[in-house]
């Protein structure tokens, strides 16, 4: 038995999607796992791996990425504590992208068989896990829209709004004040821009007065205006 509920952040995340009976909660917390600390830039899952585990991010931030032929990287999603960073690998036999640590992270590697078994034995859990992957898909659709159809300024404003709400919901930050451990280069890779362009765009945002960003944190002075500038409406996060 685990004395401390190590998997608590994961359960809290899943409970965003619906209530859990105490027994289901306990069953999730009793899943077997191996704890691993991974340094910044370290790989949690590699593209092409045949994973035997799914990973719950307990501490720190991670990102999903793909690398194209000329070596350019596209960041596909940013994961925060509580996120199951590769739940799809509980069923898909081969990893179709890499997951890398954005900061130093603590990850629980959970063997895939017990997760799948739990999902089928306990329908309430199965439903929440299914819900979780559907929301991941919804966020991915929003990111495609962002990169495909919005200009640089709007893309970055949108990204900053998304982090604000997700971190607030996870109890890690506040809507108008949070840590963002991303470099200009990483923001560029997440928005399909270059680092120098991100720097220029962030400066324009600074000058607009509704946002202040220093190296690792973001303070939003006017949420409504940032959301408007970012063409942001939170429906796709499915928090309501």
């Amino acid at each position: 038995m685990n004395a401390a509920p190590i998997l608590e952040p994961m359960v809290r995340k899943l409970e965003l999607w619906g209530p859990l009976e105490e027994e289901d909660r306990a069953a999730l917390l009793a899943l077997p796992y191996t704890l691993r600390e991974i340094p910044q830039q370290g790989y949690i899952v590699r593209d092409g791996d045949r994973p035997t585990h799914s990973c719950a991010l307990l501490r720190g931030y991670a990102f999903r990425q793909k690398i194209v032929a000329d070596g350019e990287r596209q960041i596909l999603a940013v994961q925060i504590p509580g996120d199951l960073v590769d739940l799809q690998n509980s069923l898909l036999p081969k990893a179709d992208h890499s997951v890398q640590a954005l900061t130093r992270v603590e990850v629980a590697y959970i063997p895939r068989e017990p997760i799948v078994a739990l999902a089928f034995e306990r329908p309430a859990i199965g439903k929440l896990l299914w819900f979780d992957t559907l929301v991941d898909g919804s966020i991915a659709r929003e990111w495609i829209t962002n990169i495909g159809r919005r200009d640089a300024y709007t893309r970055i404003a949108h990204l900053l709004c998304e982090f604000a709400l997700r971190l607030e919901k996870a109890g890690i930050g506040e809507r108008d004040r949070y840590e963002l451990p991303m470099t200009q280069e990483q923001i560029a890779d997440a928005t399909g821009l270059t680092a120098v362009h991100v720097n220029r765009t962030l400066r324009t945002m600074d000058e607009s007065g509704f946002l202040t960003r220093d190296k690792r944190s973001v303070v939003i002075h006017d949420w409504a205006r940032l959301a408007q500038a970012g063409d942001f409406s939170s429906g796709y996060l499915h928090f309501d």
Partner: peptide, 26 residues
């Protein structure tokens, strides 16, 4: 960014002697 061949995948950049450059706009 370009993924640098000199930085082995999965290893931290800590300790690597890769220089840092600053891109100023004028």
């Amino acid at each position: 960014m370009q993924v640098r061949p000199s930085q082995p995948e999965g290893r931290p950049a800590i300790g690597a002697v890769v220089p840092r450059f600053f891109f100023h706009l004028h």
